[in-house]
């Protein structure tokens, strides 16, 4: 099966403004981990949602082409998209507290994907959910499956989300700031987990984040976005040549290279160039 996500000249505009939140973005992913980095307002999250077709109706999407394998994401009906989401493509969001249903036990929420997309019976789905929760290294699976979202920690919540999203083995996983709401010590674990689950299957991962160092350490390719455009695509931070990328790296405090003052990007100059 062809699992290439290919996007050519994608633009997203919101009804009220004439500003393009995403402006002529083109890239393609066939496998592996790709990072999309940018600051707030760079359009990185809008891009992720545009691919999943999860933008509000006020947004208008235009592109020369936006396909995932044989699926045309631009022309697919809402019904087709619902089938695709969760089974072939999945989106993992920042804060597990808002993505989990507070009144349903964890186990049922994880099993739901299996029932919906794989047509399993409730019992089979429950077993599949338990197996999946074990794969995301949740220790006391039976207890966690019976608990409600407010009873578990943020890190565990995010692992539960990952389990629910990856249960149907999607071929493309978009993770939008999956670790920003988590403590530093669990961040590594969650990333490793994504790496294991997604890339072991030969699927692709689109990691959207503001943290350029984390993305650089984790991903095979890094796409840097600024004001809706892709400013450059690199494989290593060392190779970054665009002034914006370099400014972004320089602005981060680095304990190994202490400086008296941090370098601040010259926005006026960036906007001119």
């Amino acid at each position: 099966m062809d699992t290439t996500l290919s996007i050519r000249d994608l633009s997203v505009r919101f009804a009220q403004g004439s500003v393009r939140a995403v402006d002529g973005v083109s890239f393609s992913v066939s496998s592996g981990k790709i990072g999309i980095v940018g600051e707030s307002g760079s359009g990185k999250s809008t891009l992720g949602r545009a691919i999943m077709r999860l933008l509000p109706p006020s947004a208008s999407i235009s592109a020369d082409c936006m396909t995932f394998g044989e699926h045309d994401l631009l022309r697919a009906s809402e019904k087709d998209m619902r089938k695709l989401r969760g089974s072939v493509m999945a989106l993992i969001m920042q804060d597990p507290r808002y993505s989990l249903n507070p009144v349903l036990p964890i186990g049922r929420q994880v099993a739901e994907t299996a029932i919906l997309h794989k047509g399993m019976s409730r019992k089979e789905a429950g077993e599949a959910a338990a197996a999946m929760l074990e794969r995301v290294r949740i220790r006391d699976v039976t207890r966690v499956m019976q608990s409600y979202p407010h009873q578990i920690s943020g890190g565990m919540g995010q692992r539960v989300m990952i389990a629910a999203m990856l249960l149907a083995r999607p071929r493309l996983v978009i993770a939008d700031e999956p670790t920003s709401a988590l403590d530093v010590s669990v961040r590594g674990e969650v990333l490793e987990l994504l790496d294991d689950l997604v890339c072991a299957d030969g699927s692709s991962l689109l990691l959207i984040s503001h943290d350029i160092r984390m993305v650089a350490a984790f991903c095979d390719r890094i796409i840097v976005m600024y004001q809706g455009r892709i400013v450059e695509e690199v494989t290593q931070l060392r190779d970054a040549s665009h002034p914006y990328t370099r400014a972004l790296i320089a602005a981060m405090p680095d304990p190994r290279h202490p400086v008296r003052r941090l370098a601040v990007p010259d926005r006026a100059k960036l906007e001119r160039g």
Binding site: E39, S40, H210, L248, A251, L262, V264, P265
Partner: peptide, 13 residues
């Protein structure tokens, strides 16, 4: 954001 963080940290210093 990272670049704004740098500005604020500089200001504080």
């Amino acid at each position: 954001d990272v670049s704004v963080q740098a500005e604020i940290l500089n200001l504080l210093s």
